[in-house]
Computed example of a mutant assay.
Amino acid sequence: MWESEKVRGVIYRGGTSRGVYLLENDLPKEPHIRDQVILSIYGSPDARQINGLGGADSLTSKVAIIGPSEREDADVDYTFGQVSITKPLIDYVGNCGNISSGVGPFAVDEGLVKAVEPITYVRIYNTNTKKIIVAEVPVRDGKALNKGEYAINGVPGTGAKIILNFLDSGGAVTGKLLPTGNLKDEITLADGTQLTVSLVDAANPAVFFKASDLGLTGTELPDAVNSNPSLLQRIEEIRSIAAEMLGLAPKQEATDKSPAVPKIVFFSPPTDYKTSDGRHVGKESIDLVARTMSMQKMHKAFAVTGGICTATAAKLEGTVVSQILSTEASQRSTVRLGHPSGTLDFEITFRKTEDGSPELEKAAVNRTARRIMEGYIYIPREIYWPYH
Rank of each mutant, 00 (worst) to 15 (best):
V116Y: 13
G159D: 02
R8I: 14
M298E: 04
T120Y: 01
I286H: 00
I379P: 03
D141R: 13
E70R: 13
Y150D: 10
P222V: 02
L22P: 02
T319L: 08
L27E: 02
G19T: 07
K161Y: 09
I50T: 11
V93S: 09
A314K: 00
R381H: 12
S40G: 08
E186D: 13
T158P: 12
L183H: 12
E284G: 14
E354R: 15
I383E: 08
T129K: 05
I99K: 03
L145S: 07
A249W: 10
P28F: 04
G342C: 12
V281A: 08
Q49V: 06
N126D: 06
G157M: 05
E149W: 14
I286E: 09
D109T: 05
N226Y: 07
N228C: 12
I65Q: 04
K29M: 15
E110D: 15
G159R: 02
D46T: 08
Q233P: 13
A107C: 09
L164V: 08
S169D: 13
S101F: 00
R234S: 14
K114N: 10
R8S: 15
P179C: 07
T271S: 14
N128P: 08
H280D: 15
V365Q: 03
G278V: 07
K210L: 14
V63G: 01
V289E: 00
P270H: 06
N95D: 01
A74K: 03
G282I: 10
A313Y: 02
L89Y: 10
Y92R: 09
K131S: 02
S326F: 06
T368S: 04
L344T: 08
T120G: 00
A254D: 11
P205N: 07
